[in-house]
């Protein structure tokens, strides 16, 4: 599903170069739930940004579902993100002017699905993540955990090939964190959803199939 080869990302800030990824290679198979663990500053987010097509690597290769994504134009990347990828940010990056259900169906609307269809799909997903009672609430009326679940639902609405999650539980209490992780586990087991999740909490390990350890921009072990 994902093939990463010798991926490097160097940030140039004036005369200072920050080598956030120093050559990372790994494969992820379809249906895997993979965790990326590493200390702060080890390049976890940078890695996920490259895979999520939110940033362009300095060198290396990324193949997602058979597509060499680095070669895509900005416009093609946008379409690729919309159709194939789901992304959950560390903070609850949902739109404050939209209700929960509107936030979820927006990517579906963008694809051009019919209203009845995307409305039904979105409501179903929100029910799956346990927000069936909160469909028409605005983000400011939701708790952090609930907002993050809306973000997860939104990431799933277009049935992505891969779901990326960058420390999705960083701002949540243990209870909400467990809720999200169990949701991921369920999605992975029941729907075969491929998931790549960044985490730095030891107790998250038990939810994933496999772990990639990052340190100083390199894979320490797999």
């Amino acid at each position: 599903m994902i093939k990463v080869k010798n991926l490097k990302r160097v940030y140039v800030m004036g005369k200072v170069e920050v080598r956030a990824l120093k050559g990372v290679s790994f494969d992820i198979e379809k249906g895997e739930f993979v965790g990326i663990i590493g200390p702060s500053g080890s390049g976890k987010s940078t890695l996920l940004h490259q895979l999520g097509l939110l940033d362009t690597p300095t060198s290396g290769e990324i193949m997602i579902a058979g597509v060499d994504v680095i070669g895509l134009s900005e416009h093609e990347k946008t379409i690729f993100r919309l159709n194939r990828l789901g992304y959950v940010f560390q903070e609850y990056a949902i739109l404050p002017e939209l209700t929960a259900v509107e936030n979820v169906y927006l990517p579906s609307m963008m694809i051009g699905k019919k209203r009845e269809r995307y409305l039904k799909t979105s409501i179903d997903i929100l029910e799956t993540v346990g927000l069936g009672e909160r469909l028409y609430h605005r983000p400011h009326e939701l708790s952090g955990g609930e907002q993050q679940r809306v973000a997860v639902a939104r990431a799933l609405v277009n049935k992505p090939k891969i779901l990326f999650a960058d420390e999705p539980c960083a701002n949540l209490d243990t209870e909400s964190s467990r809720h999200i992780l169990e949701l991921f586990k369920k999605l992975n087991e029941e729907l075969g959803q491929t998931i790549l999740m960044v985490s730095h909490e030891e107790w998250h390990k038990k939810y994933v199939d496999r772990i990639i350890y990052l340190k100083d921009g390199l894979i320490e072990k797999m």
Partner: peptide, 16 residues
Amino acid sequence: RKQIGILKAIGINQKV
């Protein structure tokens, strides 16, 4: 700005 960034991140076209 942040919202616009999010919109782009989830695949909403710049023109839109």
